[in-house]
């Protein structure tokens, strides 16, 4: 056997199974989804399917879809904003003020919840946020005359639950880029007479921006597709693009419409990914 034939056999043997597996589970499903989104019905069981653009035109003409798509985008932006606002200072403290084993332990503590079951974590908020939950009781314990309040099944509840879910991610990506900034750079800036604010604005922030952007994109995208968190925490406030899509598959069984809405969501995702691709490339490389 020639060496090039052996090489080819090795490559096929090593990566062929993965390629085959991903073809069946990722490539073909996405292709099928694209095709079905242009059909009147899913062509199974002898049903006649015809080509249609209706699902896409519906999206742009019926306010129901546009409103809910915007609600999803807004939720994504708000959750991302709060994650960055809370997470960046935490990452900064971890990278610059804490050293050694403490830093190691704190990082692990922060990331642990992110790695545990998100459904269970979301559910655990119901016990804190409901009208006789921990938060209401604590506030009434301090201020007995405070009006009763029930955060559960409101829009802020969704935001709180999702911020908790994605905050560790934001802290981690910001930490990685902040930690890579050499202390000698900031020391040089100080010795040249820069104030603390200058050093932050002109040195630290620009150098850590890639981490902040990566964290933001990697928070925004899954939040855009969230449906379980709004359902559990949001009650009547739950209707968003994600839950609308879920509905097409679990309740109203209009799969082609669900596929079209899914592709519109994917288009938003791709737009964001494309915009920030140069930054993201470093964070999600699989080579």
């Amino acid at each position: 056997m020639t060496s090039s034939a052996r090489r080819l056999r090795a490559i096929i043997g090593l990566s062929g199974p993965t390629a085959l597996w991903l073809t069946v589970t990722v490539v073909l499903p996405l292709a099928a989804m694209l095709v079905f989104s242009f059909l009147t019905v899913v062509p199974v069981g002898g049903r006649e399917a015809a080509f249609t653009l209706k699902h896409y035109t519906d999206f742009f003409t019926r306010p129901l879809y546009l409103t809910n798509a915007w609600r999803s985008v807004r939720l994504g932006l708000e959750v991302t904003f709060f994650c960055a606002l809370i997470g960046y200072p935490a990452a900064y403290i971890l990278a610059k003020a804490i050293k050694g084993r403490w830093r190691e332990a704190l990082l692990l503590l922060i990331v642990l919840p992110f790695w545990s079951n998100s459904l269970v974590r979301t559910f655990s908020w119901t016990m804190v946020l409901s009208d006789n939950g921990l938060l209401a009781r604590t506030i009434h314990g301090i201020l007995p005359f405070a009006p009763s309040f029930d955060l559960l099944y409101t829009y802020p509840a969704i935001v709180i639950g999702l911020v908790q879910s994605y905050l560790p991610y934001m802290i981690l990506t910001c930490y990685i880029s902040l930690q890579a900034i050499e202390d000698s750079l900031t020391e040089a800036a100080y010795s040249l007479g820069a104030s603390r604010f200058d050093v932050f604005r002109r040195v630290i922030l620009p150098l850590s921006l890639p981490g902040l952007i990566a964290g933001s994109v990697l928070t925004f995208v899954p939040v855009l597709g969230a449906f379980m968190e709004p359902r559990i925490l949001g009650g009547q406030q739950a209707i968003m693009l994600g839950t609308l899509i879920e509905n097409q598959f679990t309740a109203s069984f209009n799969w082609p419409l669900g596929a079209a809405l899914g592709f519109i969501m994917l288009a938003i995702v791709l737009l964001i990914m494309g915009l920030f691709y140069p930054v993201l490339k470093k964070h999600i490389s699989v080579n």
């Binding site: 499903p29 989804m33 079905f36 596929a259």
Partner: peptide, 18 residues
């Protein structure tokens, strides 16, 4: 890695069913 799981999951559902 990068798409919302909602899309991955529903795409798989449609293709596997079909």
């Amino acid at each position: 890695l990068t798409m919302p799981w909602l899309i991955t999951g529903t795409a798989m559902l449609m293709f596997f069913f079909w």
